[in-house]
């Protein structure tokens, strides 16, 4: 049986205390919410924190409040089940209900949190393997020895000399952003709150991410994601299309998130297209957005916008499916997403 390494488990009762432990202990301490990402990685020895800080005892961290009119606030500890089944999310942020409801399995969604999904470690089929397997292949840039986090935490990590196994000549790690909710939240224009030992700040979800498989989050180690703020839905229609081998369990190897607002005559006033699962962070597809904006959602417009994501979608060979297949599916999935929105009645 795979088992967890030893660690110290702390359960602060408020965020400030949690931040303080993180600040005091540095990278030796890690946060756990649902545990669905961190525990498997601890069992496979990618992470060996000395201290785990459980967020379960912190009140209100799982609260969902607000409305479609004023904007909805999702506590970071709200489970993916709670988010995807929330009536306001389903009615006014349908793409998010779809994205959160497409994560892994219903059981894991009962455990995994929306905050955890946003902070999900990047994935790679050279990295998400057991200690033995990684040793056999000679480790990889993201985890260049068997010692695991936190020994391997500093920013010189990518100078360990151990190559990226996907792109051996590369100076960076190409592990893949595999969160379903991030592309959708970016498309919806959501913000999030980070609380750290030095205070709190609100940033756009997009700004949480770096295009780097190892240093994929921009937040400081002692900052904790506490809530996600959705703007007023304002008639925005949204959807999420996910490529994966099976309709359950599997991470996205391409995620297409679309949010758009149409005028009464059908003219697109505002469009956001974000792709996930094809690189180390979610990518906004500017050209597609430009093509869509100011026009109606005709077949031709949809086709043109869809084709425009073929070039910027540049996956590598480190997930399920052939990389070129994933690239090829980007326009197809966007076309289907846009067609779905085009045929959808206007959002009340």
């Amino acid at each position: 049986m795979l088992r967890l390494p030893k660690f110290q488990y702390l359960t602060p009762q408020n965020i400030n205390d949690a931040c303080k432990i993180l600040a005091d202990q540095g990278p030796a301490a890690m946060i756990v919410a649902g545990g669905t990402d961190i525990y498997p990685k601890m069992k496979r020895r990618q992470f060996l924190p000395k201290t785990l800080i459980g967020l379960r005892k912190i009140d209100d961290l799982d609260r969902i409040s607000g409305s479609a009119k004023s904007g909805l606030t999702l506590g970071a500890s709200a489970t993916l089940t709670e988010v995807s089944s929330h009536s306001v999310v389903q009615e006014s942020y349908a793409g998010l209900a779809k994205a959160a409801g497409a994560v892994s399995t219903p059981i894991l969604r009962n455990m995994g949190t929306i905050g955890g999904n946003l902070c999900l470690d990047t994935r790679c089929n050279y990295y998400d393997q057991t200690h033995h397997w990684r040793q056999a292949i000679g480790w990889c840039m993201k985890a260049p020895s068997g010692k695991g986090w936190p020994v391997l935490q500093d920013s010189k990590l990518n100078q360990s000399g151990v190559p990226c196994r996907v792109a051996p000549g590369s100076s960076r790690c190409w592990a893949v952003s595999s969160t379903d909710s991030a592309p959708m939240l970016i498309a919806l224009g959501a913000k999030l709150k980070l609380i750290g030992s030095k205070g709190e700040r609100v940033i756009s979800v997009k700004d949480l991410y770096n295009d780097d498989g190892m240093f994929y989050l921009s937040k400081a180690h002692d900052e904790i994601l506490t809530e996600i703020q959705l703007p007023p839905s304002d008639g925005i229609k949204s959807t999420y299309w996910k490529l994966r081998r099976r309709e359950s369990f599997d991470f996205p190897v391409l995620g297409v998130a679309v949010a758009l607002k149409q005028a009464k005559d059908g003219t697109v006033e505002h469009a956001k297209v974000v792709l996930g699962g094809i690189g180390s962070c979610p990518f906004e597809m500017a050209e597609a957005q430009n093509i869509l904006t100011g026009k109606r959602l005709t077949e031709n417009q949809i086709e043109a916008a869809s084709q425009s994501v073929f070039n910027p979608a540049r996956p590598l060979d480190n997930t399920d499916f052939h990389l070129f297949y994933r690239k090829r599916m980007a326009p197809v999935y966007l076309k289907r997403a846009l067609t779905e929105l085009a045929t959808m009645g206007s959002n009340v």
């Binding site: 390494p5 030893k6 660690f7 110290q8 488990y9 359960t11 602060p12 009762q13 459980g54 005892k57």
Partner: peptide
């Protein structure tokens, strides 16, 4: 400021 299970630790083999 914390409750619940608190482990006191001695180091053995890096763990």
């Amino acid at each position: 400021f914390y409750t619940g299970a608190v482990g006191t630790a001695k180091t053995k083999g890096g763990l």
